[in-house]
Amino acid sequence: MDSLVVLVLCLSCLLLLSLWRQSSGRGKLPPGPTPLPVIGNILQIGIKDISKSLTNLSKVYGPVFTLYFGLKPIVVLHGYEAVKEALIDLGEEFSGRGIFPLAERANRGFGIVFSNGKKWKEIRRFSLMTLRNFGMGKRSIEDRVQEEARCLVEELRKTKASPCDPTFILGCAPCNVICSIIFHKRFDYKDQQFLNLMEKLNENIKILSSPWIQICNNFSPIIDYFPGTHNKLLKNVAFMKSYILEKVKEHQESMDMNNPQDFIDCFLMKMEKEKHNQPSEFTIESLENTAVDLFGAGTETTSTTLRYALLLLLKHPEVTAKVQEEIERVIGRNRSPCMQDRSHMPYTDAVVHEVQRYIDLLPTSLPHAVTCDIKFRNYLIPKGTTILISLTSVLHDNKEFPNPEMFDPHHFLDEGGNFKKSKYFMPFSAGKRICVGEALAGMELFLFLTSILQNFNLKSLVDPKNLDTTPVVNGFASVPPFYQLCFIPV
């Protein structure tokens, strides 16, 4: 009986604490739906499609509103004006990374994606500088992407125009580009180590996009005490870190300090320079996690976009025909596509942009946080508050993009057929937390897609009208449904 009384008292205290925290903070924060004790607004949000729920709530509470995930307040920004004001106009104040408990377990605050403060700034600055020195957006990395595009075309030829699921092959190409940047090595598509790495990356994007992960991140005790797919994700990350550590040891034994070959060499050189400046942010643990982040951000996002792009091109054969006509006119058949071609191919450029806009790969991006107490639109948001960005509300804005739910390359073309930029184009987020590999991803999408369409016609196994382009999961990332196609050599 005594234990029951204690339990009831504990629960009562928890409920009172929950109510007090919510009521004391709500006077400062933007308005929002009334949260339930302990669980907050979790029942009012469709976990399978958070973005749709945010759109519905914005119609009631406006472009800036507050939700509670458990006891934790989260300020939501919906629509271009609110997102721009926060991420661009007040970029420094909104540059923090929001709480992501599962990532905390995986990387302990290291790396480039989930770190904060001085650690994040130094690692991000170093990573950007190193990638630029190796030619991100310049010639040397373009050579690597072109080489991988040629290998991709050869792998597709091996399908002999038979029906195939493109998931694996389209994942190999961007993964190999990242391998060449980090390890100075590309792998054969049949290499077992490479296959294991690909498998872990593919599993992780599916797990991260599941409703279960949303629950884990908002009720963090689940991570330590409950079984579930989150444990598989943590094991996959541990596998990748151990693999990278092996490569780091190989580099330490063979590195030429006067001739760095890749990202690992550059990081080890930085560690050597910083060894007298303790404590340094440049450690082996930081290198492991930064490399894992580059793999995660640079492989599955690009391969998922490529997979979605081919599905949309199957669905819209008239678009595919126009792209192939432009390829034939500008590039021809006797040389590989290059980035200089893009400025002469406005329709193809528009298609690449429209694919990214339409699929809305990361509907709410990753959570941000404010780095200080900030007054925002007459609300006071306390330091450390998590900020949720609705990228969907920007990419699918119906004023900027008429009929935003329709796939239409003319969203990025003017009346004369010239490519038209849009400030609403934010597939990689915006501001200080914009994806480090934005330029690389854009290069890969253009070169891989043009190389495929230069060499193959795409054949659907069903009537294009019957192809479903609805994402199968739409949590962290929008993942396309399973499909097969035939690559018919031109």
Rank of each mutant, 00 (worst) to 15 (best):
3 S>Q: 05
6 V>G: 07
11 L>R: 00
13 C>V: 14
14 L>M: 08
16 L>M: 13
17 L>Y: 14
22 Q>M: 10
23 S>A: 10
27 G>E: 08
28 K>L: 13
29 L>I: 04
30 P>Y: 01
36 L>I: 15
39 I>V: 12
40 G>S: 02
43 L>I: 12
45 I>G: 04
49 D>N: 12
54 L>Y: 03
54 L>K: 01
56 N>I: 07
57 L>G: 02
59 K>D: 07
59 K>G: 07
62 G>A: 01
63 P>I: 01
64 V>L: 05
65 F>M: 12
65 F>D: 01
65 F>T: 05
67 L>T: 14
67 L>P: 00
71 L>F: 12
73 P>V: 04
74 I>P: 00
74 I>L: 09
79 G>S: 05
84 K>R: 12
86 A>S: 06
87 L>T: 07
90 L>P: 04
90 L>S: 09
91 G>Y: 04
92 E>R: 05
95 S>E: 15
97 R>A: 10
98 G>M: 11
104 E>G: 13
106 A>S: 08
110 F>L: 12
110 F>Y: 10
115 S>A: 14
116 N>V: 05
116 N>G: 06
117 G>I: 02
118 K>C: 12
119 K>E: 13
123 I>E: 04
123 I>A: 08
124 R>D: 03
124 R>Q: 09
125 R>M: 09
126 F>R: 03
127 S>D: 04
135 G>M: 15
137 G>V: 08
137 G>I: 11
137 G>E: 11
138 K>L: 09
138 K>C: 12
139 R>F: 11
139 R>G: 09
141 I>M: 12
142 E>M: 05
149 A>E: 00
154 E>A: 08
154 E>N: 10
156 L>T: 01
159 T>A: 05
162 S>Y: 07
163 P>Q: 05
167 T>H: 13
167 T>D: 05
167 T>C: 08
171 G>L: 12
171 G>A: 10
173 A>H: 01
175 C>Q: 04
177 V>D: 00
178 I>L: 13
178 I>T: 02
181 I>D: 00
182 I>G: 01
185 K>E: 10
186 R>D: 01
188 D>N: 15
189 Y>L: 05
192 Q>G: 09
193 Q>R: 09
193 Q>K: 13
194 F>P: 02
198 M>A: 08
198 M>R: 10
201 L>G: 05
202 N>G: 09
203 E>V: 06
203 E>S: 09
203 E>F: 07
204 N>D: 06
205 I>W: 08
205 I>D: 13
206 K>D: 09
206 K>H: 03
207 I>C: 06
208 L>K: 10
209 S>M: 08
209 S>T: 15
211 P>K: 08
217 N>M: 12
217 N>V: 06
217 N>K: 12
217 N>W: 08
221 P>W: 11
222 I>W: 08
223 I>G: 07
227 P>L: 05
229 T>Q: 14
230 H>C: 07
232 K>R: 09
234 L>A: 14
237 V>P: 02
239 F>L: 11
239 F>W: 15
241 K>M: 02
247 K>R: 14
248 V>A: 06
249 K>E: 07
251 H>E: 02
255 M>S: 06
256 D>N: 14
259 N>G: 12
259 N>E: 10
262 D>S: 14
263 F>P: 04
267 F>E: 04
267 F>R: 03
268 L>M: 08
268 L>Q: 03
268 L>C: 06
269 M>A: 13
269 M>L: 12
271 M>A: 13
272 E>R: 12
274 E>K: 10
276 H>A: 11
277 N>A: 14
278 Q>R: 15
280 S>M: 09
281 E>D: 14
282 F>M: 05
283 T>S: 07
283 T>P: 03
283 T>F: 05
284 I>R: 07
285 E>C: 07
286 S>K: 05
291 A>S: 08
292 V>M: 14
294 L>Q: 00
302 T>M: 09
307 R>W: 01
311 L>S: 01
315 K>T: 06
316 H>W: 08
317 P>E: 07
317 P>A: 10
319 V>G: 00
319 V>T: 07
330 V>A: 07
333 R>L: 14
334 N>G: 11
340 Q>E: 15
341 D>G: 00
350 A>Y: 01
354 E>F: 00
356 Q>E: 04
356 Q>A: 07
364 T>G: 08
364 T>A: 09
365 S>Q: 03
365 S>V: 10
366 L>W: 09
367 P>N: 03
368 H>Q: 06
370 V>M: 07
371 T>S: 11
373 D>M: 02
374 I>F: 07
377 R>D: 04
378 N>E: 11
379 Y>T: 03
381 I>G: 00
383 K>F: 02
386 T>C: 12
392 T>C: 08
394 V>T: 13
395 L>H: 10
395 L>W: 08
395 L>F: 07
400 E>R: 02
404 P>F: 05
406 M>D: 14
406 M>Q: 11
406 M>T: 14
408 D>L: 04
412 F>K: 00
415 E>V: 11
416 G>C: 15
417 G>S: 09
419 F>R: 04
419 F>C: 09
422 S>H: 07
423 K>W: 07
425 F>R: 04
427 P>H: 10
427 P>C: 15
428 F>Q: 05
428 F>G: 05
428 F>Y: 15
432 K>M: 14
437 G>Q: 05
438 E>P: 03
438 E>L: 07
440 L>A: 02
444 E>D: 03
445 L>T: 10
449 L>E: 00
449 L>C: 07
449 L>V: 12
456 F>V: 00
456 F>H: 01
456 F>A: 00
459 K>E: 09
461 L>V: 09
462 V>E: 14
462 V>T: 11
463 D>Y: 06
464 P>D: 05
464 P>K: 11
466 N>M: 09
468 D>E: 08
468 D>F: 06
469 T>W: 03
472 V>P: 06
472 V>L: 13
474 N>R: 14
475 G>F: 10
479 V>R: 15
479 V>Q: 09
481 P>G: 07
481 P>I: 08
482 F>L: 10
486 C>T: 09
487 F>P: 00
